[in-house]
Amino acid sequence: MLLKRLFSAVLFLSFFSGAFAQSKTVNLLSIQQLNKRMSNPDTVYIVNFWATWCGPCVKELPNFDQLQTTYKKQPVKVLLVSMDFKSKLGEVKTFTKTRKLVSDVFLADKTNEQSFIDGIDKSWSGALPGTLVVNNKKHIRKFYEQEFTYNELNKLYQTNK
């Protein structure tokens, strides 16, 4: 009886995790989790910091998705880290869905704003948008407090891959 219950529970859970994997979700991401995610030496990471309320950010997001789609067979990973308030998780999820974002989307988990910003890059004033490029194999970690067109972004990837 107990076994049967356990079995159905597992079935139930696996069904749900499967369903979640299908539809895009947005998880919280601390600076430690972000660093862990960017640790593969063979992958180039392009991390964009944006917010739903930031006009220039919203405008450039499709360029990041375009880069991810264009090079989906290459070891490049685009991460879109929203700097919206943690209380706005629902809005970030809705935004991700309605804009049909293809790259992985996260919401920054900042227990201390100052140390989060400094942890990304000491030169970052905190203004959005900002973009971080990481290539561990080549010891590259560069931060740009600016907007990117697709061509600029493509150039950024080509010069750092």
Partner: peptide
């Protein structure tokens, strides 16, 4: 001195 985090 701290960073002024906000809108540009």
């Amino acid at each position: 001195t701290t960073k002024a985090i906000g809108c540009s």
